[in-house]
């Protein structure tokens, strides 16, 4: 393979990885923007999304098959379920803690994360589940670069979800209300905005995106596990910080940037793919030290 081929191959790999990161980072950043909570349970919603999608796929596969029709259908169902799960968590666990000191709600989020991951562990006996689909390994071959149709569909689906979100945030009244609440909650109340309802909607959308990413990851990697949300939760946090936490565009950009950095990072001499986590979290540490506001974040000095 020529170095140009390697470049394009890693570009493709990085884009796929980056789309997953971006989808999960969006929920992270939206929730942080609106109630200033680092929702540590967010990665577990991604994991739950994979399992719920898996469950729905096995239910609808008789009717719709295990190809794209069945997969997309179970992805939508999984998004709805995980969206509602996110709203439920917000209502039961976070809303009573909103007026408590900041640290309390952070600890609550850690607890929710453990409940979700241990809950799924108990239900699955901690086993890996094979996420079987009928998708083939056909794809586009350009020289030595090979991209499967599955990869293309996944990246396009992620892009469509992000475009829809972007349209919603910038063009609809509820989307504008969401941005306004991140700026000034009391002023929003005086506009006639039901703040609690918009917060619930934010949790719904953020969680649904994580659910979608979970199903996509199941399809892409072919197996799912109760612990799969842990590392991606941290990666999504890194991506959100890279982009500037609280910024929607930042999360998309940060996710893609992190995916690409990891993909290209594996090409550095003597640095194999087993080092990619070190690479990511090294970047996180450097950013937190030198540019904590990220690429698109606003300057805001505030202690967690």
């Amino acid at each position: 393979m020529s170095s140009l081929d390697i470049f394009f191959q890693q570009l493709a790999n990085g884009l796929i990885l980056g789309s997953f990161y971006a989808l999960v980072a969006l929920g992270y950043t939206m929730v942080y923007g609106i109630i200033k909570l680092l929702n540590f349970a967010h990665g577990d919603l991604y994991m739950c999304g994979a399992f719920v999608g898996f469950l729905f796929l096995s239910l609808v596969s008789g009717l719709l098959g295990e190809s794209w029709t069945g997969i997309l259908c179970s992805m939508v169902l999984s998004m709805l379920t995980i969206g509602l799960l996110g709203v439920l968590i917000q209502r039961v666990a976070y809303r009573p803690m909103l007026s408590a000191p900041r640290l309390s709600i952070l600890i609550t989020a850690l607890a929710v994360s453990m409940v979700l991951s241990n809950g799924v562990m108990a239900l699955t006996d901690g086993d890996y589940e094979a996420f079987n689909t009928d998708l083939g390994f056909e794809g586009l071959e350009m020289g030595n670069v090979f991209i499967t149709y599955t990869q293309i569909v996944l990246v396009v689906s992620a892009a469509l979800l992000m475009l829809t979100l972007f349209f919603f945030i910038n063009r609809t009244m509820y989307g504008k209300a969401m941005r306004a609440i991140a700026i000034d909650q009391d002023a929003c109340r005086l506009m006639g905005i039901n703040v609690n309802r918009v917060i619930a909607l934010t949790f719904f959308i953020g969680s649904a995106l994580a659910g979608a990413a979970g199903v996509m990851a199941g399809v892409y990697y072919g197996s799912i596990h109760f612990f799969m949300g842990f590392v991606i939760g941290l990666k999504a946090f890194t991506a959100a910080v890279i982009g500037g936490i609280g910024s929607i565009r930042g999360a998309m950009l940060g996710g893609l940037a992190l995916g690409l950095l990891e993909a290209f990072g594996t090409q550095i001499p003597f640095v194999g793919s087993e080092w990619k986590d070190v690479f990511s979290f090294g970047i996180l540490i450097l950013l937190l030290v030198f540019k904590p506001t990220g690429l698109l974040g606003k300057t805001e000095i505030e202690r967690m």
């Binding site: 504008k176 941005r179 306004a180 700026i183 000034d184 009391d186 002023a187 109340r189 005086l190 506009m191 006639g192 905005i193 039901n194 703040v195 606003k298």
Partner: peptide
């Protein structure tokens, strides 16, 4: 709740204007 009061036509312009900066 405030949002229902606003819907009735009682509108409050708060101290310090509180416009949405960044929008």
């Amino acid at each position: 709740p405030p949002h229902d009061i606003v819907a009735m036509g009682l509108i409050h312009v708060p101290e310090g204007r509180r416009v949405f900066k960044g929008m």
